Computed example of a mutant assay.
Amino acid sequence: MNPRRKKRLGIVLAIFIGISATVGLMLYALSQNMDLFYTPTEIVNGKDDGSKPYVGQRLRIGGMVVPGTVKRDPDSLLVSFDLNDVGPKVTIVYEGILPDLFREGQGIVAQGVLKDATTIEAFEVLAKHDEEYMPPEVAEAMKKTHQPLEYSQEQKQGSGQ
């Protein structure tokens, strides 16, 4: 091989190795930051495919705050509460200021780390808003393009539905 071809081959190999290393590092970083979504029942019993989260795994959990289970530490921002769906309960421990929409009986999504089989140490808690809520811009657009909700309900009642 002449020196010119050796130099080209070296450059092509260096570029290929550089791109491979970059892609490998990106995939590794993405796998470390992937949070799987679970419900309380899936955490306790496992998902349909048999997979169950392991202690120390980062995850997201969604469910309803069980009424009467919110416990606040008077000396700090530490809060614990139970979360459930249709099955078993899971305890969420969170240190921080809860969202304004957080209340008992409300749906929430928490992101955190599984500490044991039924306890999650959350670092973020998001409260779901009421399903009937509609931003003002959307409500205004709906008024322009659709008939009012009251009219459509009266129409249904009048037609016997």
Rank of each mutant, 00 (worst) to 15 (best):
Q155H: 14
I11F: 01
G46C: 01
A139K: 13
V113I: 13
D116R: 00
V86F: 05
K128E: 08
G87N: 01
D35P: 07
D75I: 13
T91Y: 09
L78P: 01
V44Q: 02
A110Y: 06
M142C: 08
P88N: 06
V138F: 09
P148K: 11
I11V: 11
K128G: 04
R60W: 13
L149Y: 15
V23E: 10
Q57M: 11
K89S: 00
I11P: 01
L59R: 06
F123D: 14
P3I: 11
V90I: 04
R58H: 13
L13P: 07
M1G: 12
G10W: 09
V90H: 03
L114I: 04
T41D: 07
N2C: 08
N45W: 02
E95L: 11
D116T: 03
H129K: 15
L27A: 09
R8S: 13
K128A: 10
D100A: 12
Q155R: 14
Q32M: 07
E140T: 11
P74S: 15
L126V: 14
V125M: 13
T91P: 00
V65Y: 00
Y54V: 15
F81E: 04
T118F: 05
G56I: 02
I61M: 08
E154I: 12
P135W: 00
N2A: 08
L30H: 08
G96W: 05
A139W: 06
V90E: 01
V66H: 02
K144Y: 11
L36P: 04
P148E: 15
